[in-house]
Design a protein around this nucleic acid. Sequence first.
DNA 1: CGATTTCTGTATCCTCAGATACATATTTTA
DNA 2: TAAAATATGTATCTGAGGATACAGAAATCG
Lengths: 224, 224
Amino acid sequence: MDYFSLSESPLFRGLTSAELRTVLQETPHHIQCYEKGELIFMQMDDARQVGIILEGQVQGQKTFPNGSLVNVSSRGPGNVIGPAAVFSRMHQYPCDVTAVEPSTIMMLRRDDLLVLLQKDVRILQNFITEISTTTVMLQQKIELFSYNGIGQKAAFWLLLRYRKTGKTCVAIPGSVTKWALQMNVSRPSLHRELKKMEENGYIRYSSKQIEILSPDGLQDMLGE
Amino acid sequence: MDYFSLSESPLFRGLTSAELRTVLQETPHHIQCYEKGELIFMQMDDARQVGIILEGQVQGQKTFPNGSLVNVSSRGPGNVIGPAAVFSRMHQYPCDVTAVEPSTIMMLRRDDLLVLLQKDVRILQNFITEISTTTVMLQQKIELFSYNGIGQKAAFWLLLRYRKTGKTCVAIPGSVTKWALQMNVSRPSLHRELKKMEENGYIRYSSKQIEILSPDGLQDMLGE
DNA sequence: CGATTTCTGTATCCTCAGATACATATTTTA
DNA sequence: TAAAATATGTATCTGAGGATACAGAAATCG
């Protein structure tokens, strides 16, 4: 069993491989493999365990009575799946989680994780940081959603990246299509708006990448 | 100093007053009073401490370059302010927090809280439950926002309350005006939609309160 | 208890963005 | 490398909902 990649997980940051090995030997857990497309957690299921992705890629998706799905969020190796669901008062998973490629997941039951957290302050700290960071990102997403215009949403999104990375070149998440999906707007509309921003000289837009020419211009778009 | 109300705080649930007193005597903290309108945390400030409301009412608000403010969320006694900001990677407060009435806040520095969490599993558990529940509520808010129609948003919101309380009577948060604000839609539009729902026989709508006549009807509205 | 502020109910107008469609370009995979 | 699948660029139509306005009802306050 290869625990090495785990030491790069946000949850175990700061621990040596040896420490990690020790701590995990003392903590009940099991490792589970999933094939591409297999269901890992099911929407509304009783949330008893968190997963830590060792290998592969998983995706959350909310299915609706009528069949359509939304809210696609994606996680890769090292990420923790479902902590909020497990520890929240309603403890049920808010959406389906499926493997988008063959994946290996380490499963930890709630109480075992709790014990683990008490065992090592660094893990505790990492865990809390993890949930808190998620919370902050959600807050940002809400802020994103609460802008009225598509132009504003896009500008806000670009400014976030810009501030975070400091670089004026921002990669589009996957494709414009996916980006539009994430922001919950229609693709043609987003495209329309991007072109407008380009005409105004705020950005340069070549599919797959956007260069921010005028952060101030974008900022102005937000302040109505 | 009256620690009694604290034992009803979500953070200290399960501890006796005596235990609480002991544990707090061992934990560095200070108590701060704020007048109505006074600023407790400032947007973008380095987030070093969390607050626990002992008395009063506080409000978060995001101010924009142009002056307008949004994202108004309100907290009362027992609630914890700012944990996500303090423990997230960017550790800065995402918005201004002001007292809307004279308030008493207990302040805990990050590291002191961390020590406190290690001291008592129940507090640890409560704290994690607290931030996790916040996360889940944010996820729900995002789901709310990602419905396209105002009718759908309202229906989703009503169904959430209905499922949580089991009661068919749901109180409108404050006023329709405030409700509309929370959902980020215009008041006349919301009103228009509520009337439509009433005509369809899904709800009975008297200002200040809504009676759900047909949960299934509302459910159908979501599945397009 | 009158006065002022804040909420409701409702109508009218008009814009923004969603749906749809389709030709072209790009990427994937067989 | 041909074929299939997916993404892009763009145009046209339509409708949901925002802005605005205002009269009447409640609630709050000196």
